[in-house]
């Protein structure tokens, strides 16, 4: 877990890559929903797939598949992990 690199937005992740949540820039109800799902700073999250028209993207968090819109995922900053493949 040492291959920490740069800070990205979750929305920029391409399917297959794994990263670690750094902070949530969301507010209000959505922020609470995201926290409730266990997407908290430090959590590992893997981008799984994009929808057929490319927009909602499914992420694997704590063995649960959760779809987020790109606008919302853009407000979650993450740290990409190089050796992430084995982490999740």
């Amino acid at each position: 877990m040492k291959g920490a690199e740069r800070i990205d937005a979750l929305a920029d992740l391409s399917p297959g890559s794994v990263c670690q949540i750094v902070s949530l820039e969301l507010s209000g109800l959505l922020r609470r929903r995201i926290l409730d799902l266990g997407i908290v700073p430090g959590t590992l999250i893997r981008c799984i797939r994009r929808g057929p028209s490319g927009d909602p993207t499914a992420y694997l968090v704590r063995e649960t598949l959760i779809a987020l819109r790109s606008e919302d995922a853009a407000q979650i900053s993450v740290r990409t992990l190089l050796n992430g493949e084995e982490c999740i």
């Binding site: 959505l30 929903r33 995201i34 799902l37 909602p56 499914a58 649960t64 598949l65 959760i66 779809a67 987020l68 819109r69 606008e71 919302d72």
Partner: peptide, 11 residues
Amino acid sequence: EPSSLVLELPS
């Protein structure tokens, strides 16, 4: 404007 979507995809 459209708000957010948090959708769980169960197995």
